[in-house]
Design a binder for these strands. Structure first.
Length: 142
DNA sequence: GCCAACGTTGGC
DNA sequence: GCCAACGTTGGC
């Protein structure tokens, strides 16, 4: 059974470990190190090549969405631990400015986003197309 | 299978 | 650096 509609995601990375700038330089990377079953299942069962991704800097000052990526491979074993899996994520663009967590929280249009919920640690989250588009729009406006 | 202890995430 | 929230581990 195949899904045909495009999916949208938010994927967290700690900029001290792997930032949007590194992704821009490398153009594509295996999204390794995911050690949470729910996040793994999203990669394994729901992601499709071409899905659009908000790249989010966690453990940053401030935290927020810094740019865009896209899913660039089918799932395959995590090279750092073959019990887990990765997908490749390709660089798409770096935003002219960060859309901070604070700003997303304040925006009524984004009140359903998972990332703004207290205690939400999930490192890969589905977002709606509307949320995705709205975050992109915020990034392109002041 | 329960659940207390422990480890991790990640905002603040 | 603190600690709330959550996920995992392991004894029973």
């Amino acid at each position: 059974m195949h899904k045909s509609s495009m999916n949208f995601w938010l994927m967290k990375t700690e900029p001290d470990v792997y930032s949007i700038d590194t992704l821009q330089k490398e153009k594509k990377t295996p999204w390794d190190g995911v050690r949470n079953y729910q996040a793994r299942n999203f990669m394994r069962d729901s992601m499709e090549i071409g899905d659009k991704v908000l790249i989010y800097h966690s453990n940053a000052k401030p935290p927020g969405v810094v740019g865009l990526g896209k899913v660039a491979s089918a799932p395959y074993p995590d090279p750092t631990d073959e019990k887990w899996i990765v997908v490749d994520i390709a660089f798409v663009k770096k935003f002219p400015r960060m859309v901070s967590l604070y700003e997303m929280r304040e925006d009524p249009a984004l009140k359903t986003m998972l990332v703004i919920k207290k205690g939400m640690r999930l490192s890969i989250q589905p977002v709606t197309e509307k949320e995705y588009t709205h975050v992109c729009h915020l990034a392109e406006t002041t």
